[in-house]
Write a protein that binds this DNA or RNA. Structure first.
Lengths: 240, 240
DNA sequence: CGGTGTGTTGAGCAAGGTCAATCCCCGTGG
DNA sequence: CCACGGGGATTGACCTTGCTCAACACACCG
């Protein structure tokens, strides 16, 4: 039951054979709980395992000397948080938990075996890191060109889809245990401006965020202000 | 002689066996010239080939409805511009030439063969897409948190390293045939502000850009204002 | 009961955007 | 040889978005 959400995420994009599924299930070595706000991987460390997120929210982030922080990706259950460390060996960013999390560690040696014995599964895992890169690109667009309002709207649209894939939405609402500071660090804004912008979204009847619950009031409208389309999330099942 | 720069780029990061090198050399199907300012791949198209850039500058970009454009990555000679389309099948962005380019097309079928027969080479190619993602993350940091001055400085630092790897720098200077509009589209700024910021960099004795030539006057100083470190470019040779 | 972390709001400020004019270089055609 | 035109660079004047600083509210927790 551990890696069900990873299977959901991958099998949405391509068919997994029984052997491939078994190979995936055999990946985790250790499963553990990590409390919120723990940096579990630091930039530059030599790594021998990748981390699979089973439950909770994590992020990748970088800091500047003046103390400002930028989150480069948010991870939800089912995300193979640092699968890219398998080929990179050292990460260029830190990884931390935002909420209490359940994670599995996957030795790189096991991933290497997969590349030697399961070419199709290898392509699927490769795909999954390319999907992370596609998300990065969409964030680049948000940070470079979208207004604060559109950026925040886009953020909620993306999470609505990504959480929906792994069964963590309830129609138009979902749990999102982030502080306004966390959100600001995703969006390249200050928490104060996030606060004001949330107010505008609320007043326009688009979304509300209260007590860690996001309720989308008008999905069409929200997607319109965000100029959100889900193409970049590769939501199609096709041979990879 | 076609793919020498790709070999330079990859063999800096890991050792390539003779068979692997031969397999890479066998990848290109067609080699062609493309004039400047041609969009060669559009978001959403079904793709059967990947493009390898042999000479020139290309970029990945996305547009918003209001006409603004964001470039999400700049590609230099030796870059496997859309290797990620091998697993994604459709891209989330457009790809265009910024200067006149020489490109090779590589059928996905040949890449698939590599994943079936050359696991180590597969990991190296996988690595190279993960390197693109690392560059995306650094841009996310720039766009989200760096000032215009630091952003521009960082941009030059990155290109200095990346062009150096493939032998396209001459000490502290290199050719960069981009307009200020192109640069602005990379950095999430307006071309007017790029112009003013270039002036500041020039006045501070850090870099000059004139007639398509970048001359770094003070590399240490430039890297300091950019808070540039090259870790994210994985400049180490190690087994992948 | 006080402390700490988070959210909310106001007032003023600054980085970067917008609009517009001018310049410069260079290629083209008469 | 020179007038003309177009793309890119440069600069000024003014404006807007989002930041900074500060105060305060509220909840939770030891």
């Amino acid at each position: 039951m551990a890696i069900e959400k990873l299977l959901l995420k991958l099998s949405l994009r391509d068919e997994l054979s029984a052997e491939e599924e078994a190979a995936l299930r055999a990946l985790p070595e250790i499963i553990k709980e990590v409390p919120a706000d723990k940096t579990i991987i630091r930039a530059g460390e030599a790594l021998n395992d990748s981390t699979l997120l089973l439950e909770g929210l994590m992020c990748r982030y970088k800091d500047l000397k003046n103390g400002s922080r930028q989150i480069s990706e948010l991870h939800v259950a089912g995300d193979f948080v640092d699968l890219h460390s398998f080929t990179l060996k050292r990460l260029d960013h830190n990884i931390m938990t935002l909420t209490c999390c359940r994670v599995a560690t996957v030795p790189h040696a096991r991933l290497k075996r997969i590349t030697e014995e399961f070419p199709h599964l290898t392509r699927i895992l490769w795909f999954s890191t390319n999907l992370d890169a596609a998300i990065h690109r969409e964030w680049v667009l948000s940070l470079g060109r979208r207004t604060a309002l559109a950026r925040l709207a886009h953020f909620f649209c993306e999470l609505h889809v990504r959480l929906g894939i792994v069964g963590l939405t309830d129609g138009l609402s979902f749990r999102l245990d982030l502080t306004q500071v966390d959100i600001a660090e995703c969006l390249g804004l200050t928490s104060i401006h996030v606060n004001r912008t949330l107010k505008v979204l609320r007043e326009q009847g688009l979304v509300e965020l209260r007590g860690g619950i996001v309720e989308i009031r008008d999905l069409i409208g929200l997607r319109r202000v965000a100029e959100f389309t889900d193409d970049y999330l590769s939501l199609e099942r096709r041979p990879r």
